[in-house]
Design a protein around this nucleic acid. Structure first.
Length: 514
RNA sequence: GCGGAAGUAGCUCAAUUGGUAGAGCUCUAGCCUUCCAAGCUAGAGGUUGCGGGUUCGAGACCCGUCUUCCGCUCCA
């Protein structure tokens, strides 16, 4: 394939639209930025991916159960989780350089510069005096004390302003500090604006402060708030997991790269509750288990890599991503985080309810630690789509576009064709469709030459085509044509259901995990 | 959100630089056809992204707006 990566990616996007996988949302109204709809084939593929994940998690693990929590949650949830604070970035633009900055980062950088000055004073003094008492110097040197007071003052003002959501005060602070834009060097700033990454809406008909609720920015909290319910009613014993798939919403500043970063997206998450102190074992276990799951799709081992986080989020004591090589480079596909007891402890504090586990072996209660696996369903969809899509050049110079989807995930498992549209062949083909459709997604097609019908199925990733010819009427056999190799074999009609079961059912994929 | 580029049929693209919006593929109906995008006939599909303006006349020029792509910025 001699295409440049960005051209290849464009072709993937076009293919998704042309064959009913993904449409832009509200396209007839010019679309909505970074929101997409799944079409007739996309919905099937997405559903199959979700089902494979769910079965691999819930059905294959006795100690993992699934739930389906609401998108709306009590507003305090997001205070406890840290999202109200962490997701509220105050932003400011420099009118000359047209660059945008986070106001808090500008102020932090400014504070860091003053700290540098202090450190320089300390270094100088160190060289000058023997028996240097650093603590004493820091608390008595006039210049250092002045700097330190300045820092304290800035930090206090910033904290007060942020707690009061007083954005004008934040701007005033930036002006008072005489902070300049690193690019333009000017102090020509816009007002500070809050950019909340959570979507807010009103619950009930009266809109006041207390009725503001958010669309969840992650699904994990739905699991944490139900921890006790599930643990008790499900008689779950640690270690155990709670799995969930569902939509989450983030008002991204820039959302791009097709369905890679959308404002509305679907997560598939599993929170695994473990005894404190054992979390690193389980973290390593799930790192391996999740990579294995991805590898089972057969997209190629070299497309995946781990990326361990060095800078950890406020809630984690270990974190890594499983990255996938998209047409635009290696990007996060799944996150595996050791979230400690941060979330449950926060919810204990904010709700006043105990979220603990009584360990019979140890005869004590504790707040469990959590190891999270969180994968983006849409990203998974894109990873599968972009590695399945191929433009092949066949012998004779003609090209065919084919989606080499993992057979078990393909929207349509088999196309059933009469070789020609008469002599009773359509009737027999219809009978075959009716016999197969209880177990498998199959379609019937009699339009155009059979070769063309094969190519149509190739383009949407149908792994098998079944063709009824005149011989079929005599000996009840048909040809079975495989998508990737284009090889055909003659099989008995009576064996079709079993063959499809072996080759295209989710069971065939799940078997590889055990 | 900033800067740059683009937007014409489902797809890929034309339209003499301001003068009748067209082709191929796809799609639909029919004919023909014994296994890899064959052929024939007929048909459908468009307020040229949207809204203004200039002009006798705008797909083309100007302004605004929406969307997409590229680069910044952002991505707990």
């Amino acid at each position: 394939m001699s295409l440049k990566p960005e051209d290849f990616f464009k072709n993937v996007i076009s293919h998704c639209k042309e064959y009913g996988y993904i449409f832009q949302s509200s396209e007839i109204y010019d679309g909505l930025s970074a929101v997409y709809d799944y079409g007739q084939n996309g919905a099937e593929l997405k559903k199959n991916i979700r089902e494979y994940w769910w079965k691999a998690m819930v059905q294959l693990h006795e100690n993992i159960v699934g739930i389906d929590a609401s998108i709306f949650m009590h507003p305090t949830t997001w205070k406890a989780s840290g999202h109200v604070d962490a997701f509220n970035d105050p932003l400011i633009d420099n009118k000359d350089s047209k660059k945008r900055y986070r106001a808090d980062v500008l102020i932090e950088d400014h504070v860091a510069k003053i700290e540098d000055k202090i450190n320089k004073e300390v270094e100088k003094a160190k060289k000058r005096f023997e028996n240097f008492d650093e603590a004493m110097f820091r608390s008595t040197n006039a210049r250092v004390v002045e700097y330190q007071n300045k820092i304290n003052d800035i930090n206090t003002r910033f904290k007060t302003a942020m707690n009061a959501s007083d954005l004008d005060a934040v701007k005033q602070l930036i002006l008072d500090c005489e902070i300049v834009c690193p690019i333009s060097g000017t102090r020509n700033w816009t007002d500070v604006r809050q950019f909340n990454l959570m979507f807010a809406t009103q619950l009930g008909s009266v809109s006041d402060e207390s009725s503001t609720i958010y669309l969840r920015p992650e699904t994990a909290q739905g699991i944490f708030v139900n921890y006790s319910n599930v643990q008790k009613t499900g008689r779950m014993k640690i270690p155990f997991g709670i799995a969930q798939t569902g939509k989450a919403f983030r008002n991204e500043i820039v959302a791009r790269q097709f369905i890679f970063r959308m404002r509305e997206f679907e997560q598939m998450e599993m929170q695994f509750f473990v005894k404190p102190g054992t979390e690193m074992e389980w973290y390593e276990y799930w790192k391996k288990a999740r990579l294995n799951w991805h590898l089972s799709l057969g997209l190629g081992e070299t497309h995946y890599r781990y990326h361990d986080h060095i800078k950890l989020a406020h809630y984690a004591n270990a974190a890594c991503d499983i990255e996938f090589e998209f047409p635009f480079g290696f990007k996060e596909l799944e996150g595996i985080h050791s979230r400690t007891d941060f979330d449950l402890k926060q919810h204990e504090e904010f709700s006043g309810k105990k979220l603990q586990y009584f360990d019979n072996e140890e005869n004590r209660s504790y707040v469990p630690y959590v190891v999270e696996t969180s994968v983006g369903l849409d990203r998974l969809f894109l990873s599968i789509m972009s590695s399945a899509y191929k433009e092949e050049t066949l012998e004779g110079g003609e090209t065919r576009s084919v989606l080499s989807l993992p057979p078990a995930l393909a929207p349509i498992k088999a196309g059933v064709f009469p070789l020609i549209k008469r002599d009773g062949l359509p009737e027999l083909a219809e009978q075959i469709v009716n016999a197969l459709k209880l177990d498998h997604m199959v379609i019937y097609d009699e339009k155009d030459a059979v070769g063309k019908r094969y190519r149509r199925q190739d383009a949407i990733g149908t792994p098998y085509c079944i063709t009824v010819d005149h011989q079929s009427l005599e000996d009840q056999t048909v040809t079975l044509r495989e998508r990737d190799s284009m090889q055909q074999e003659r099989v008995k009609i009576a064996d079709l259901n079993r063959i499809l079961d072996e080759k295209v059912s989710l069971k065939s994929l799940l078997k590889t995990l055990i």
